[in-house]
Nucleic acid binder design. Structure first.
Lengths: 213, 213
DNA sequence: CAATTTATGTCAGTCGATGACAGATGACAA
DNA sequence: TTGTCATCTGTCATCGACTGACATAAATTG
């Protein structure tokens, strides 16, 4: 890797760290781009060459996580049912977070604190999650041999995303605590859902005929 | 109601209609506050006395719907299980939309079109839904006799919100089509979830002991 | 009508974000 | 090393969202 690439990476990391620090101490809204840029000793214009917006720098780590979740899902064996594969992918993601070095872990914690204390960033997180949800639906539909527009893949992913988001509710930041909470929620989901609910349904089966009261 | 109140209501409605029209024709980002204000013949400063932001005027109807859903839930009898009550509240809300007069129905359709074609507004919708979700959890927890921090009420509301959001995915705007889609999704949810999954659990029951493979 | 409250317009200003241009710096070949 | 090229960066100008302060106009109240 050339010198140019390394400098860019260092500048990018420095901008993220400076931004997160300022967001934590002075608050997200009260922090200006000029302050972030000054901290890293670049021009405000340069900031926008690295990040599309003020929100972008705060959510860059969150966006990374979404990409990683999708990547982990792709590595799950086809033998796993869709919901199981999603859960395992989530477990892998948390495993990665728990194994991160101190620098990355610190960045992650600061990011979580900032996001959860700023409504605008919570909204942005929802946007990222929703965008990723469409990709997850695509992968789940492929595994089911179904169309992405069908209700079942959408429902499966929707339930999963609900559980995943519920983990991050409130003030859960530590990956270990977060893992515990995820397992509790997955256990609750498992005993709430019928066995085989996320398996492909044979189109010939008559389901609407039997509606037990 | 005095003259002052009526004029304010007229100005507010006019701002919403003008904004939605402009958002539809020129696009949300390309429309400026000045243009909206000029259309209604008020000063741009006055616009911000009615709406906190450009996003606010586009999502004011969505915010109304969220409040209405919460209100409908409050009217459901205590005899209904939490998830059933949520579903019935949603049905009531759609019923209201279907029964709306032409003016309101038109506003609603324009609003839906604009929101679904603008990423920033989709994110804003998510924020509103998430804020309302907390209130829904509070009500569900009360019905369950549980704490709002417990996992079960959060899970129940999360599943419901997933289904409700899945209804609005893609390009479903007409309330009638939307109703059909909701019923399909609720039917799918019903046959995916165990009977009694949303009922209070006796704290003495040993559930973790039996984990059927 | 007089006094009070409230809505509106004007003005100035901050901040986020973008395009255009020029200068600086690393990459690369001769 | 040197010169050329691509890329990064800073400066400047500008737009649009949003806010505070102040004065004016209108409605409410007695």
């Amino acid at each position: 890797m050339g010198l140019r690439e390394r400098k860019k990476q260092r500048t990018r990391d420095a901008l993220i760290d400076a931004a997160l620090d300022l967001f934590l101490t002075r608050g997200y809204e009260a922090t200006t781009i000029d302050q972030i840029a000054a901290e890293v000793e670049v021009s405000p214009r340069t900031f926008f060459r690295y990040f599309a917006s003020k929100e972008d720098v705060a959510l860059s780590l969150t966006a990374d996580e979404q990409r990683m979740l999708l990547a982990e899902l792709a590595t799950r064996p086809e033998s796993e049912s869709p919901f199981t594969a999603l859960c395992q992918a989530m477990r892998s993601l948390l495993q990665i977070l728990r194994e991160a070095d101190e620098t990355e872990a610190g960045r992650y914690l600061r990011c979580q604190k900032v996001v959860h204390s700023t409504p605008a960033l919570l909204a942005g997180t929802m946007r990222l999650v929703k965008e990723n949800e469409r990709k997850l639906v695509g992968e789940v539909a492929r595994r089911l041999g179904a169309d992405p527009c069908d209700l079942q893949p959408q429902f499966i992913v929707a339930v999963f995303v609900s559980v995943a988001l519920a983990c991050f509710d409130e003030r859960t930041q530590d990956p270990a605590v977060l893992t515990r909470r995820l397992e509790d929620l997955l256990a609750l989901a498992e005993r709430s859902l019928c066995p085989g609910w996320d398996l492909p349904v044979r189109s010939g089966a008559a389901e609407s005929a039997s509606t037990p009261g």
